[in-house]
């Protein structure tokens, strides 16, 4: 990939990045639509209306985080409990934003950092982190537009019409997001044996954490944080990457 001094990296123009983002966002939109239906149904069960559920989904864009929010609202939790639970459940986004902050061109105007922060979900982060070189923010915005549309629409419909999606459709659509994760991590693993090993170790460790006594009591959100700190930390120690200015492109 050609190194670009401009804020938008690579050989694509901003328009092409937006087109790519709209396209890449589509599988996320499908998966989000299926998953957020369940969220809308859960929201209705605690007495929320479609507007409230829609605002929640558009404002938070976080699946585990929103289910936690529903529990907090229905149990009449206090402000301190709301804030601390939100921090704990959504802490992995902190790590993701740390990682993505290093994909931004140093000259990128500050406002983009405020916009990009809204876009950090597991899936949108995954795609944005996977681009070569510097991140063109409009790529992330395009993905977010399509994804949040699916997420919010699904939530609102879940409240309004309840369980109308047939089980086979929900089942089939809900793996779209995992398929996307595979499409992000497997191609670099094919090129780089160290990344392949890293992915294999991560999956193995995650599998162990889900079956071993005591470890399986840890919530999936915390499992992500613990394993990311441990495995990525060890990988950086064993195999530091050369990310000097001259070869930013080899970073991706």
């Amino acid at each position: 990939m050609e190194r670009s001094a401009a804020t938008n990296a690579g050989s694509l123009t901003r328009g092409q990045w937006i087109t790519k983002g709209l396209r890449d966002g589509f599988p996320i939109c499908m998966g989000y639509f299926a998953v957020s239906f369940a969220l809308g149904i859960a929201a209705r069960a605690i007495g929320m209306n479609a507007l409230q559920a829609g605002l929640m989904s558009a404002g938070m864009v976080a699946s585990a985080g929103e289910f936690a929010a529903l529990v907090l609202i229905s149990s009449g939790a206090g402000v301190i409990e709301m804030i601390t639970t939100c921090i704990v459940v959504n802490l992995r986004y902190f790590l993701m934003s740390c990682s993505l902050s290093q994909k931004l061109h140093p000259d990128l105007p500050l406002r983009h950092r405020f916009f990009l922060a809204y876009c950090i979900t597991d899936e949108i982060f995954g795609l944005s982190a996977a681009v070569d070189g510097w991140l063109e923010p409009f790529y992330t915005y395009a993905i977010t537009l399509v994804s949040v549309f699916g997420w919010t629409t699904g939530t609102v419909l879940g409240v309004l019409v309840g369980n109308i999606l047939p089980a086979w459709a929900v089942n089939a659509l809900s793996v779209a997001l995992y398929g996307m994760f595979l499409a992000i991590i497997i191609p670099p693993a094919k090129k780089d044996p160290f990344i392949a090993g890293l992915v294999a170790v991560s999956m193995l460790a995650s599998g162990l954490f889900s079956v071993l006594p005591l470890l399986r009591e840890i919530s999936s959100g915390f499992r992500v944080i613990i394993l990311t700190l441990a495995i990525a930390g060890a990988a950086a120690f064993i195999h530091p990457v050369d990310l000097s200015e001259d070869n930013k492109e080899s970073a991706s």
Partner: peptide
């Protein structure tokens, strides 16, 4: 290096 490896580990674990 740590931040560079974060996406791979996070997505694999998820």
């Amino acid at each position: 290096s740590f931040l560079y490896y974060v996406p791979y580990v996070t997505l694999a674990v998820m």
